[in-house]
Write a protein that binds this DNA or RNA. Structure first.
Lengths: 149, 149
DNA sequence: CCAATTTCAGGTGTACTGAAATAA
DNA sequence: CTTATTTCAGTATACCTGAAATTG
């Protein structure tokens, strides 16, 4: 017993549902990533960096809705692990530009299949149209709550 | 710049989208709850207890996918704050039954309008049918990833 | 002088493992 | 004896605020 979702639309059920799904995803992702030695937060930073190479730590922080100090910890750990490298930006010498190292790219490539599989598991009860609709719904929620853009 | 979502369905975009929405929700909820002195995790425990009075801390932990030890910290803080009370279960004297105090019920009642408003903000870009579909989609994801039932 | 980036120092909240006491 | 609940101790991660140094 305990926990069964709200019986109807009376309560803040969607806020709770989002939290529950995110929690379940994180658990699976933690298990999946543990052997590789990176945490879920570190992995997320790596994937953002994969899509947007050359970001600074501060930009990465803004993209992730955390403070620059918080992201500094994550980036620092990734640098120690040899998964990212930092380099002074000559155009703006305050910035330390981040990029994946070959080891970092390797790690992402090795993890990709399992992560794709996890997403497939998550949506295994939905058909293609419903998956697309879910993506649009989440994007709309994020935009409505967002602090940026 | 930085962050724009995946251009197509190539990457694990839904995992990322869920995380982003949950993070945005938590930020809003943190801001909303700060004056009341309870954290988002504590608030969530209170709402679960509102729906299911008489749970033990261990049951609450299972409902929230955390260990009994982790939940014990949360419950302990709520007890110190006078928002929940614990009492030995006479039928099973290992269990410490949890219930909201009048102060706890009061707090939830005072917070409810703002929380409902936050959920409305989140789905403000969706029509009623899309909101329902989002709820079904999230429930399906949770069930597919879930560890219980 | 002011703004942005990074770094250092210190703190809190959340959650974990391991181990013990109590009770069914 | 085994299992469930609770509690204690220690630890790690991920956030935060505040303050300082560097550069634009």
């Amino acid at each position: 017993m305990a926990q069964r979702g709200y019986p109807d639309g009376s309560g803040p059920s969607l806020l709770y549902a989002v939290k529950q799904v995110e929690l379940a995803v994180r658990r699976h992702l933690d298990d999946l990533l543990r052997p590789s030695g990176v945490t879920t937060v570190q992995y997320t930073a790596l994937t953002v960096l994969e899509r947007c190479p050359g970001l600074s730590s501060a930009e990465l922080a803004r993209a992730s809705f955390v403070t620059a100090q918080s992201m500094a910890d994550v980036v620092s750990a990734l640098e120690v692990a040899g998964l990212v490298a930092r380099q002074r930006d000559d155009a703006n010498r305050r910035r330390l530009v981040l990029d994946l190292t070959p080891a970092g790219k390797d790690l992402l490539a090795r993890l990709a299949p399992a992560v794709v599989q996890l997403e497939r598991l998550m949506v295994s009860g939905l058909d293609d149209a419903e998956v697309q609709q879910l993506g649009r719904g989440l994007a709309s929620c994020r935009a409505a709550l967002g602090r940026d853009e």
